[in-house]
Design a protein around this nucleic acid. Structure first.
Lengths: 235, 235
DNA sequence: TAGTGGTCTAGACCACGAA
DNA sequence: TCGTGGTCTAGACCACTAG
């Protein structure tokens, strides 16, 4: 068994995709159909498909089938561009859906960061963001409402940075970022409509005001194939 | 089938690890042993183990077995600390192995970045880096030898930033970073002694001199469970 | 040489999505 | 209702590692 069977399959689909014979968003044949064509069992087929998924070439949506992944969007946190803006600039079509919004007591980490007592109210916002109709990102944010009174009355599917600018004359400035490549937690995988345990990218982002106060703490859960992160460090 | 069997297994080992009954580096029972104990087939066992691997809790090395992953090291690129330094500071033990070193003609991308003709010689350096004896990172670097004459005579398992400082009175300054969560390419997986197709983190790093010349272009391939990246953005 | 994970077969039933 | 992927059984042989 010099090269395993799934490797040939992988190569076959990989070639179809890179040569654009299978284009972004198109559906692959079903696992059983592929099995008939190549005379392999589903176990072998699935091994190949999962490897292609790990490479970021294809993805699956629930029980609907396997699809060719669109190109990854480039996220450039230091540019302070909003999701809507940078996705649009790169030729994709963004959208945002609000899944939950509520006032919550701050947990220990949030309280410490925002320098408020544990249990004090913060605004919790839970959103799902799409690129070209594909859900790619779950966002859970904790917003310091002391600094942004009345923000809960705004349309929170909008870009937060725009609301900040318009209503509060504030802008994103300093931030602390933390990235980890790991599988998506069950809640995020669920919200994205994918099986638990898929690889993903987790980001914690802490946004500060110009006065170094914590404006907002953001947890992002990305499909791993949907994003590349670019950062320029200039001392 | 409300909750699948592998989920219980996953939970079982996850609990053992977080409660430290299984500590970092220790070996799990073999797949067949686990199967006997829980009366599942290997397919189910492996599903659970692969999910735990995706979470970063365990890893496998060749055909030796499954092991509990050590804590991830925190990589803080903007700090300009060397690998040896930040790994040591976090209580781990780093080491470096040189896999290859040679003068190579620059490819298009490298030539363009370094502002030299395609085909001009650059120094190629290929290293494997370990944390606590575990290979975690493959590094492929292209070094601008015009800016660093004689660098090929140095001991290139050493920290490059130290060589820069000592021999050339240079320091790392500006850099461009690009991160992508994707599976490790075959060559990198091979060098790390793991099966191809494992999730990983790929980094491209371009290091500039204070005069904005490209000193070095670096491709890093990390085990996904070995690292967390932290960056502070200060305008 | 014995034991490990890596690959693979040939089935089966289930849960969800689309029509 | 039918087709899809999701889960699972009960085996088998191979390739590599360790002793």
């Amino acid at each position: 068994m010099s090269t395993p069977h799934y490797h040939h399959l992988q190569q076959y689909f990989s070639d179809l995709i890179t040569s654009q014979q299978l284009v972004s968003g198109s559906k692959l044949p079903s696992e059983r159909e592929i099995g008939e064509q190549f005379k392999f069992t589903r176990v072998t087929i699935r091994q190949a498909l999962k490897n292609l998924e790990a490479e970021g070439l294809i993805y699956r949506q629930n029980r609907r089938g396997w699809f060719v992944s669109p190109a990854a969007v480039i996220y450039h946190p230091a540019s302070h561009l909003s999701f809507n803006l940078y996705v649009t600039e790169q030729g994709f079509s963004p959208s945002t859906e609000k899944l939950a919004q509520q006032i919550e007591p701050a947990n220990e980490r949030i309280a410490q960061l925002m320098n408020i007592p544990v249990g004090n109210p913060v605004l919790y916002l839970h959103r799902r963001r799409y690129i070209d109709q594909r859900p790619v990102l779950i966002e859970k944010m904790y917003i310091n409402q002391n600094l942004l009174p009345g923000i809960e009355e705004e349309d929170l599917t909008e870009s937060l940075s725009q609301i900040l600018k318009r209503k509060y004359q504030q802008e994103y400035r300093d931030m602390d970022l933390s990235f980890k490549s790991t599988s998506l937690p069950a809640h995020a995988a669920n919200d994205l409509g994918i099986a638990a345990g898929q690889p993903g990218l987790q980001i914690e982002r802490i946004n500060y005001t110009s006065a170094k106060q914590v404006l907002e703490v953001d947890y992002e859960f990305w499909r791993h194939d949907a994003v590349t992160i670019n950062i320029a460090i200039r001392d």
